[in-house]
Design a protein around this nucleic acid. Structure first.
Length: 148
DNA sequence: AGCCATGCACCG
DNA sequence: CGGTGCATGGCT
């Protein structure tokens, strides 16, 4: 639809921050939308292609993130999704939790990473058929895109 | 489609 | 040898 967005923001999930005990070290990038356009194009010419991207925080510190296209679906597997990995150090340094947001901005050939803490996560209780209560953090629309 | 979860390779 | 991230399977 349009060109590369100026900025994208993600509302962090429990899995993104590692609070679920996972260690996948990366968050999912939705396919087919403007969010994906923020990143370089990765095709299916090779399996699981990737590129490194450097983002700078407010202190000028560089963070190396890896943008990977898991495209195993086209190589006999099932995966077909994009991920941005290598973020756990940034999450830890800033104490980020699910419900917080991280924003990636591209401006004047400068890639910037920043974050925003959510004051109080909204927790939703889900009652299942066995009478158990599961808690889950409510995420607004996960992604937000800002164009030039 | 998106989030949750994990076996194992790698590396300090 | 313990923590981290890759690559992938699983669940909703």
């Amino acid at each position: 639809m349009s060109n590369r967005p100026k900025s994208i923001t993600k509302n962090l999930s429990l899995n993104d921050t590692g609070e679920t005990g996972g260690h996948q070290a990366g968050m999912l990038i939705p396919k087919g939308g403007d969010v994906l356009r923020f990143f370089p194009t990765l095709g299916k010419d090779e399996k699981n292609p990737r590129t490194s991207m450097y983002f700078y925080d407010e202190n000028g510190k560089a963070w190396k993130l890896n943008f990977i296209y898991y495209n195993g679906k086209f190589y006999g597997g099932t995966r077909n999704e994009y991920r941005l990995t290598g973020m756990t150090a940034f999450f830890r340094e800033n104490g980020l939790k699910a419900g917080d947001t991280i924003t990636l901005t591209h401006e004047n050939d400068n890639d910037v990473i920043c974050y925003k803490r959510q004051a109080q996560p909204v927790v939703k209780e889900i009652h299942n058929e066995k009478g158990q209560i599961n808690k889950r953090i409510v995420l607004g629309s996960s992604w937000k895109v800002i164009h030039y």
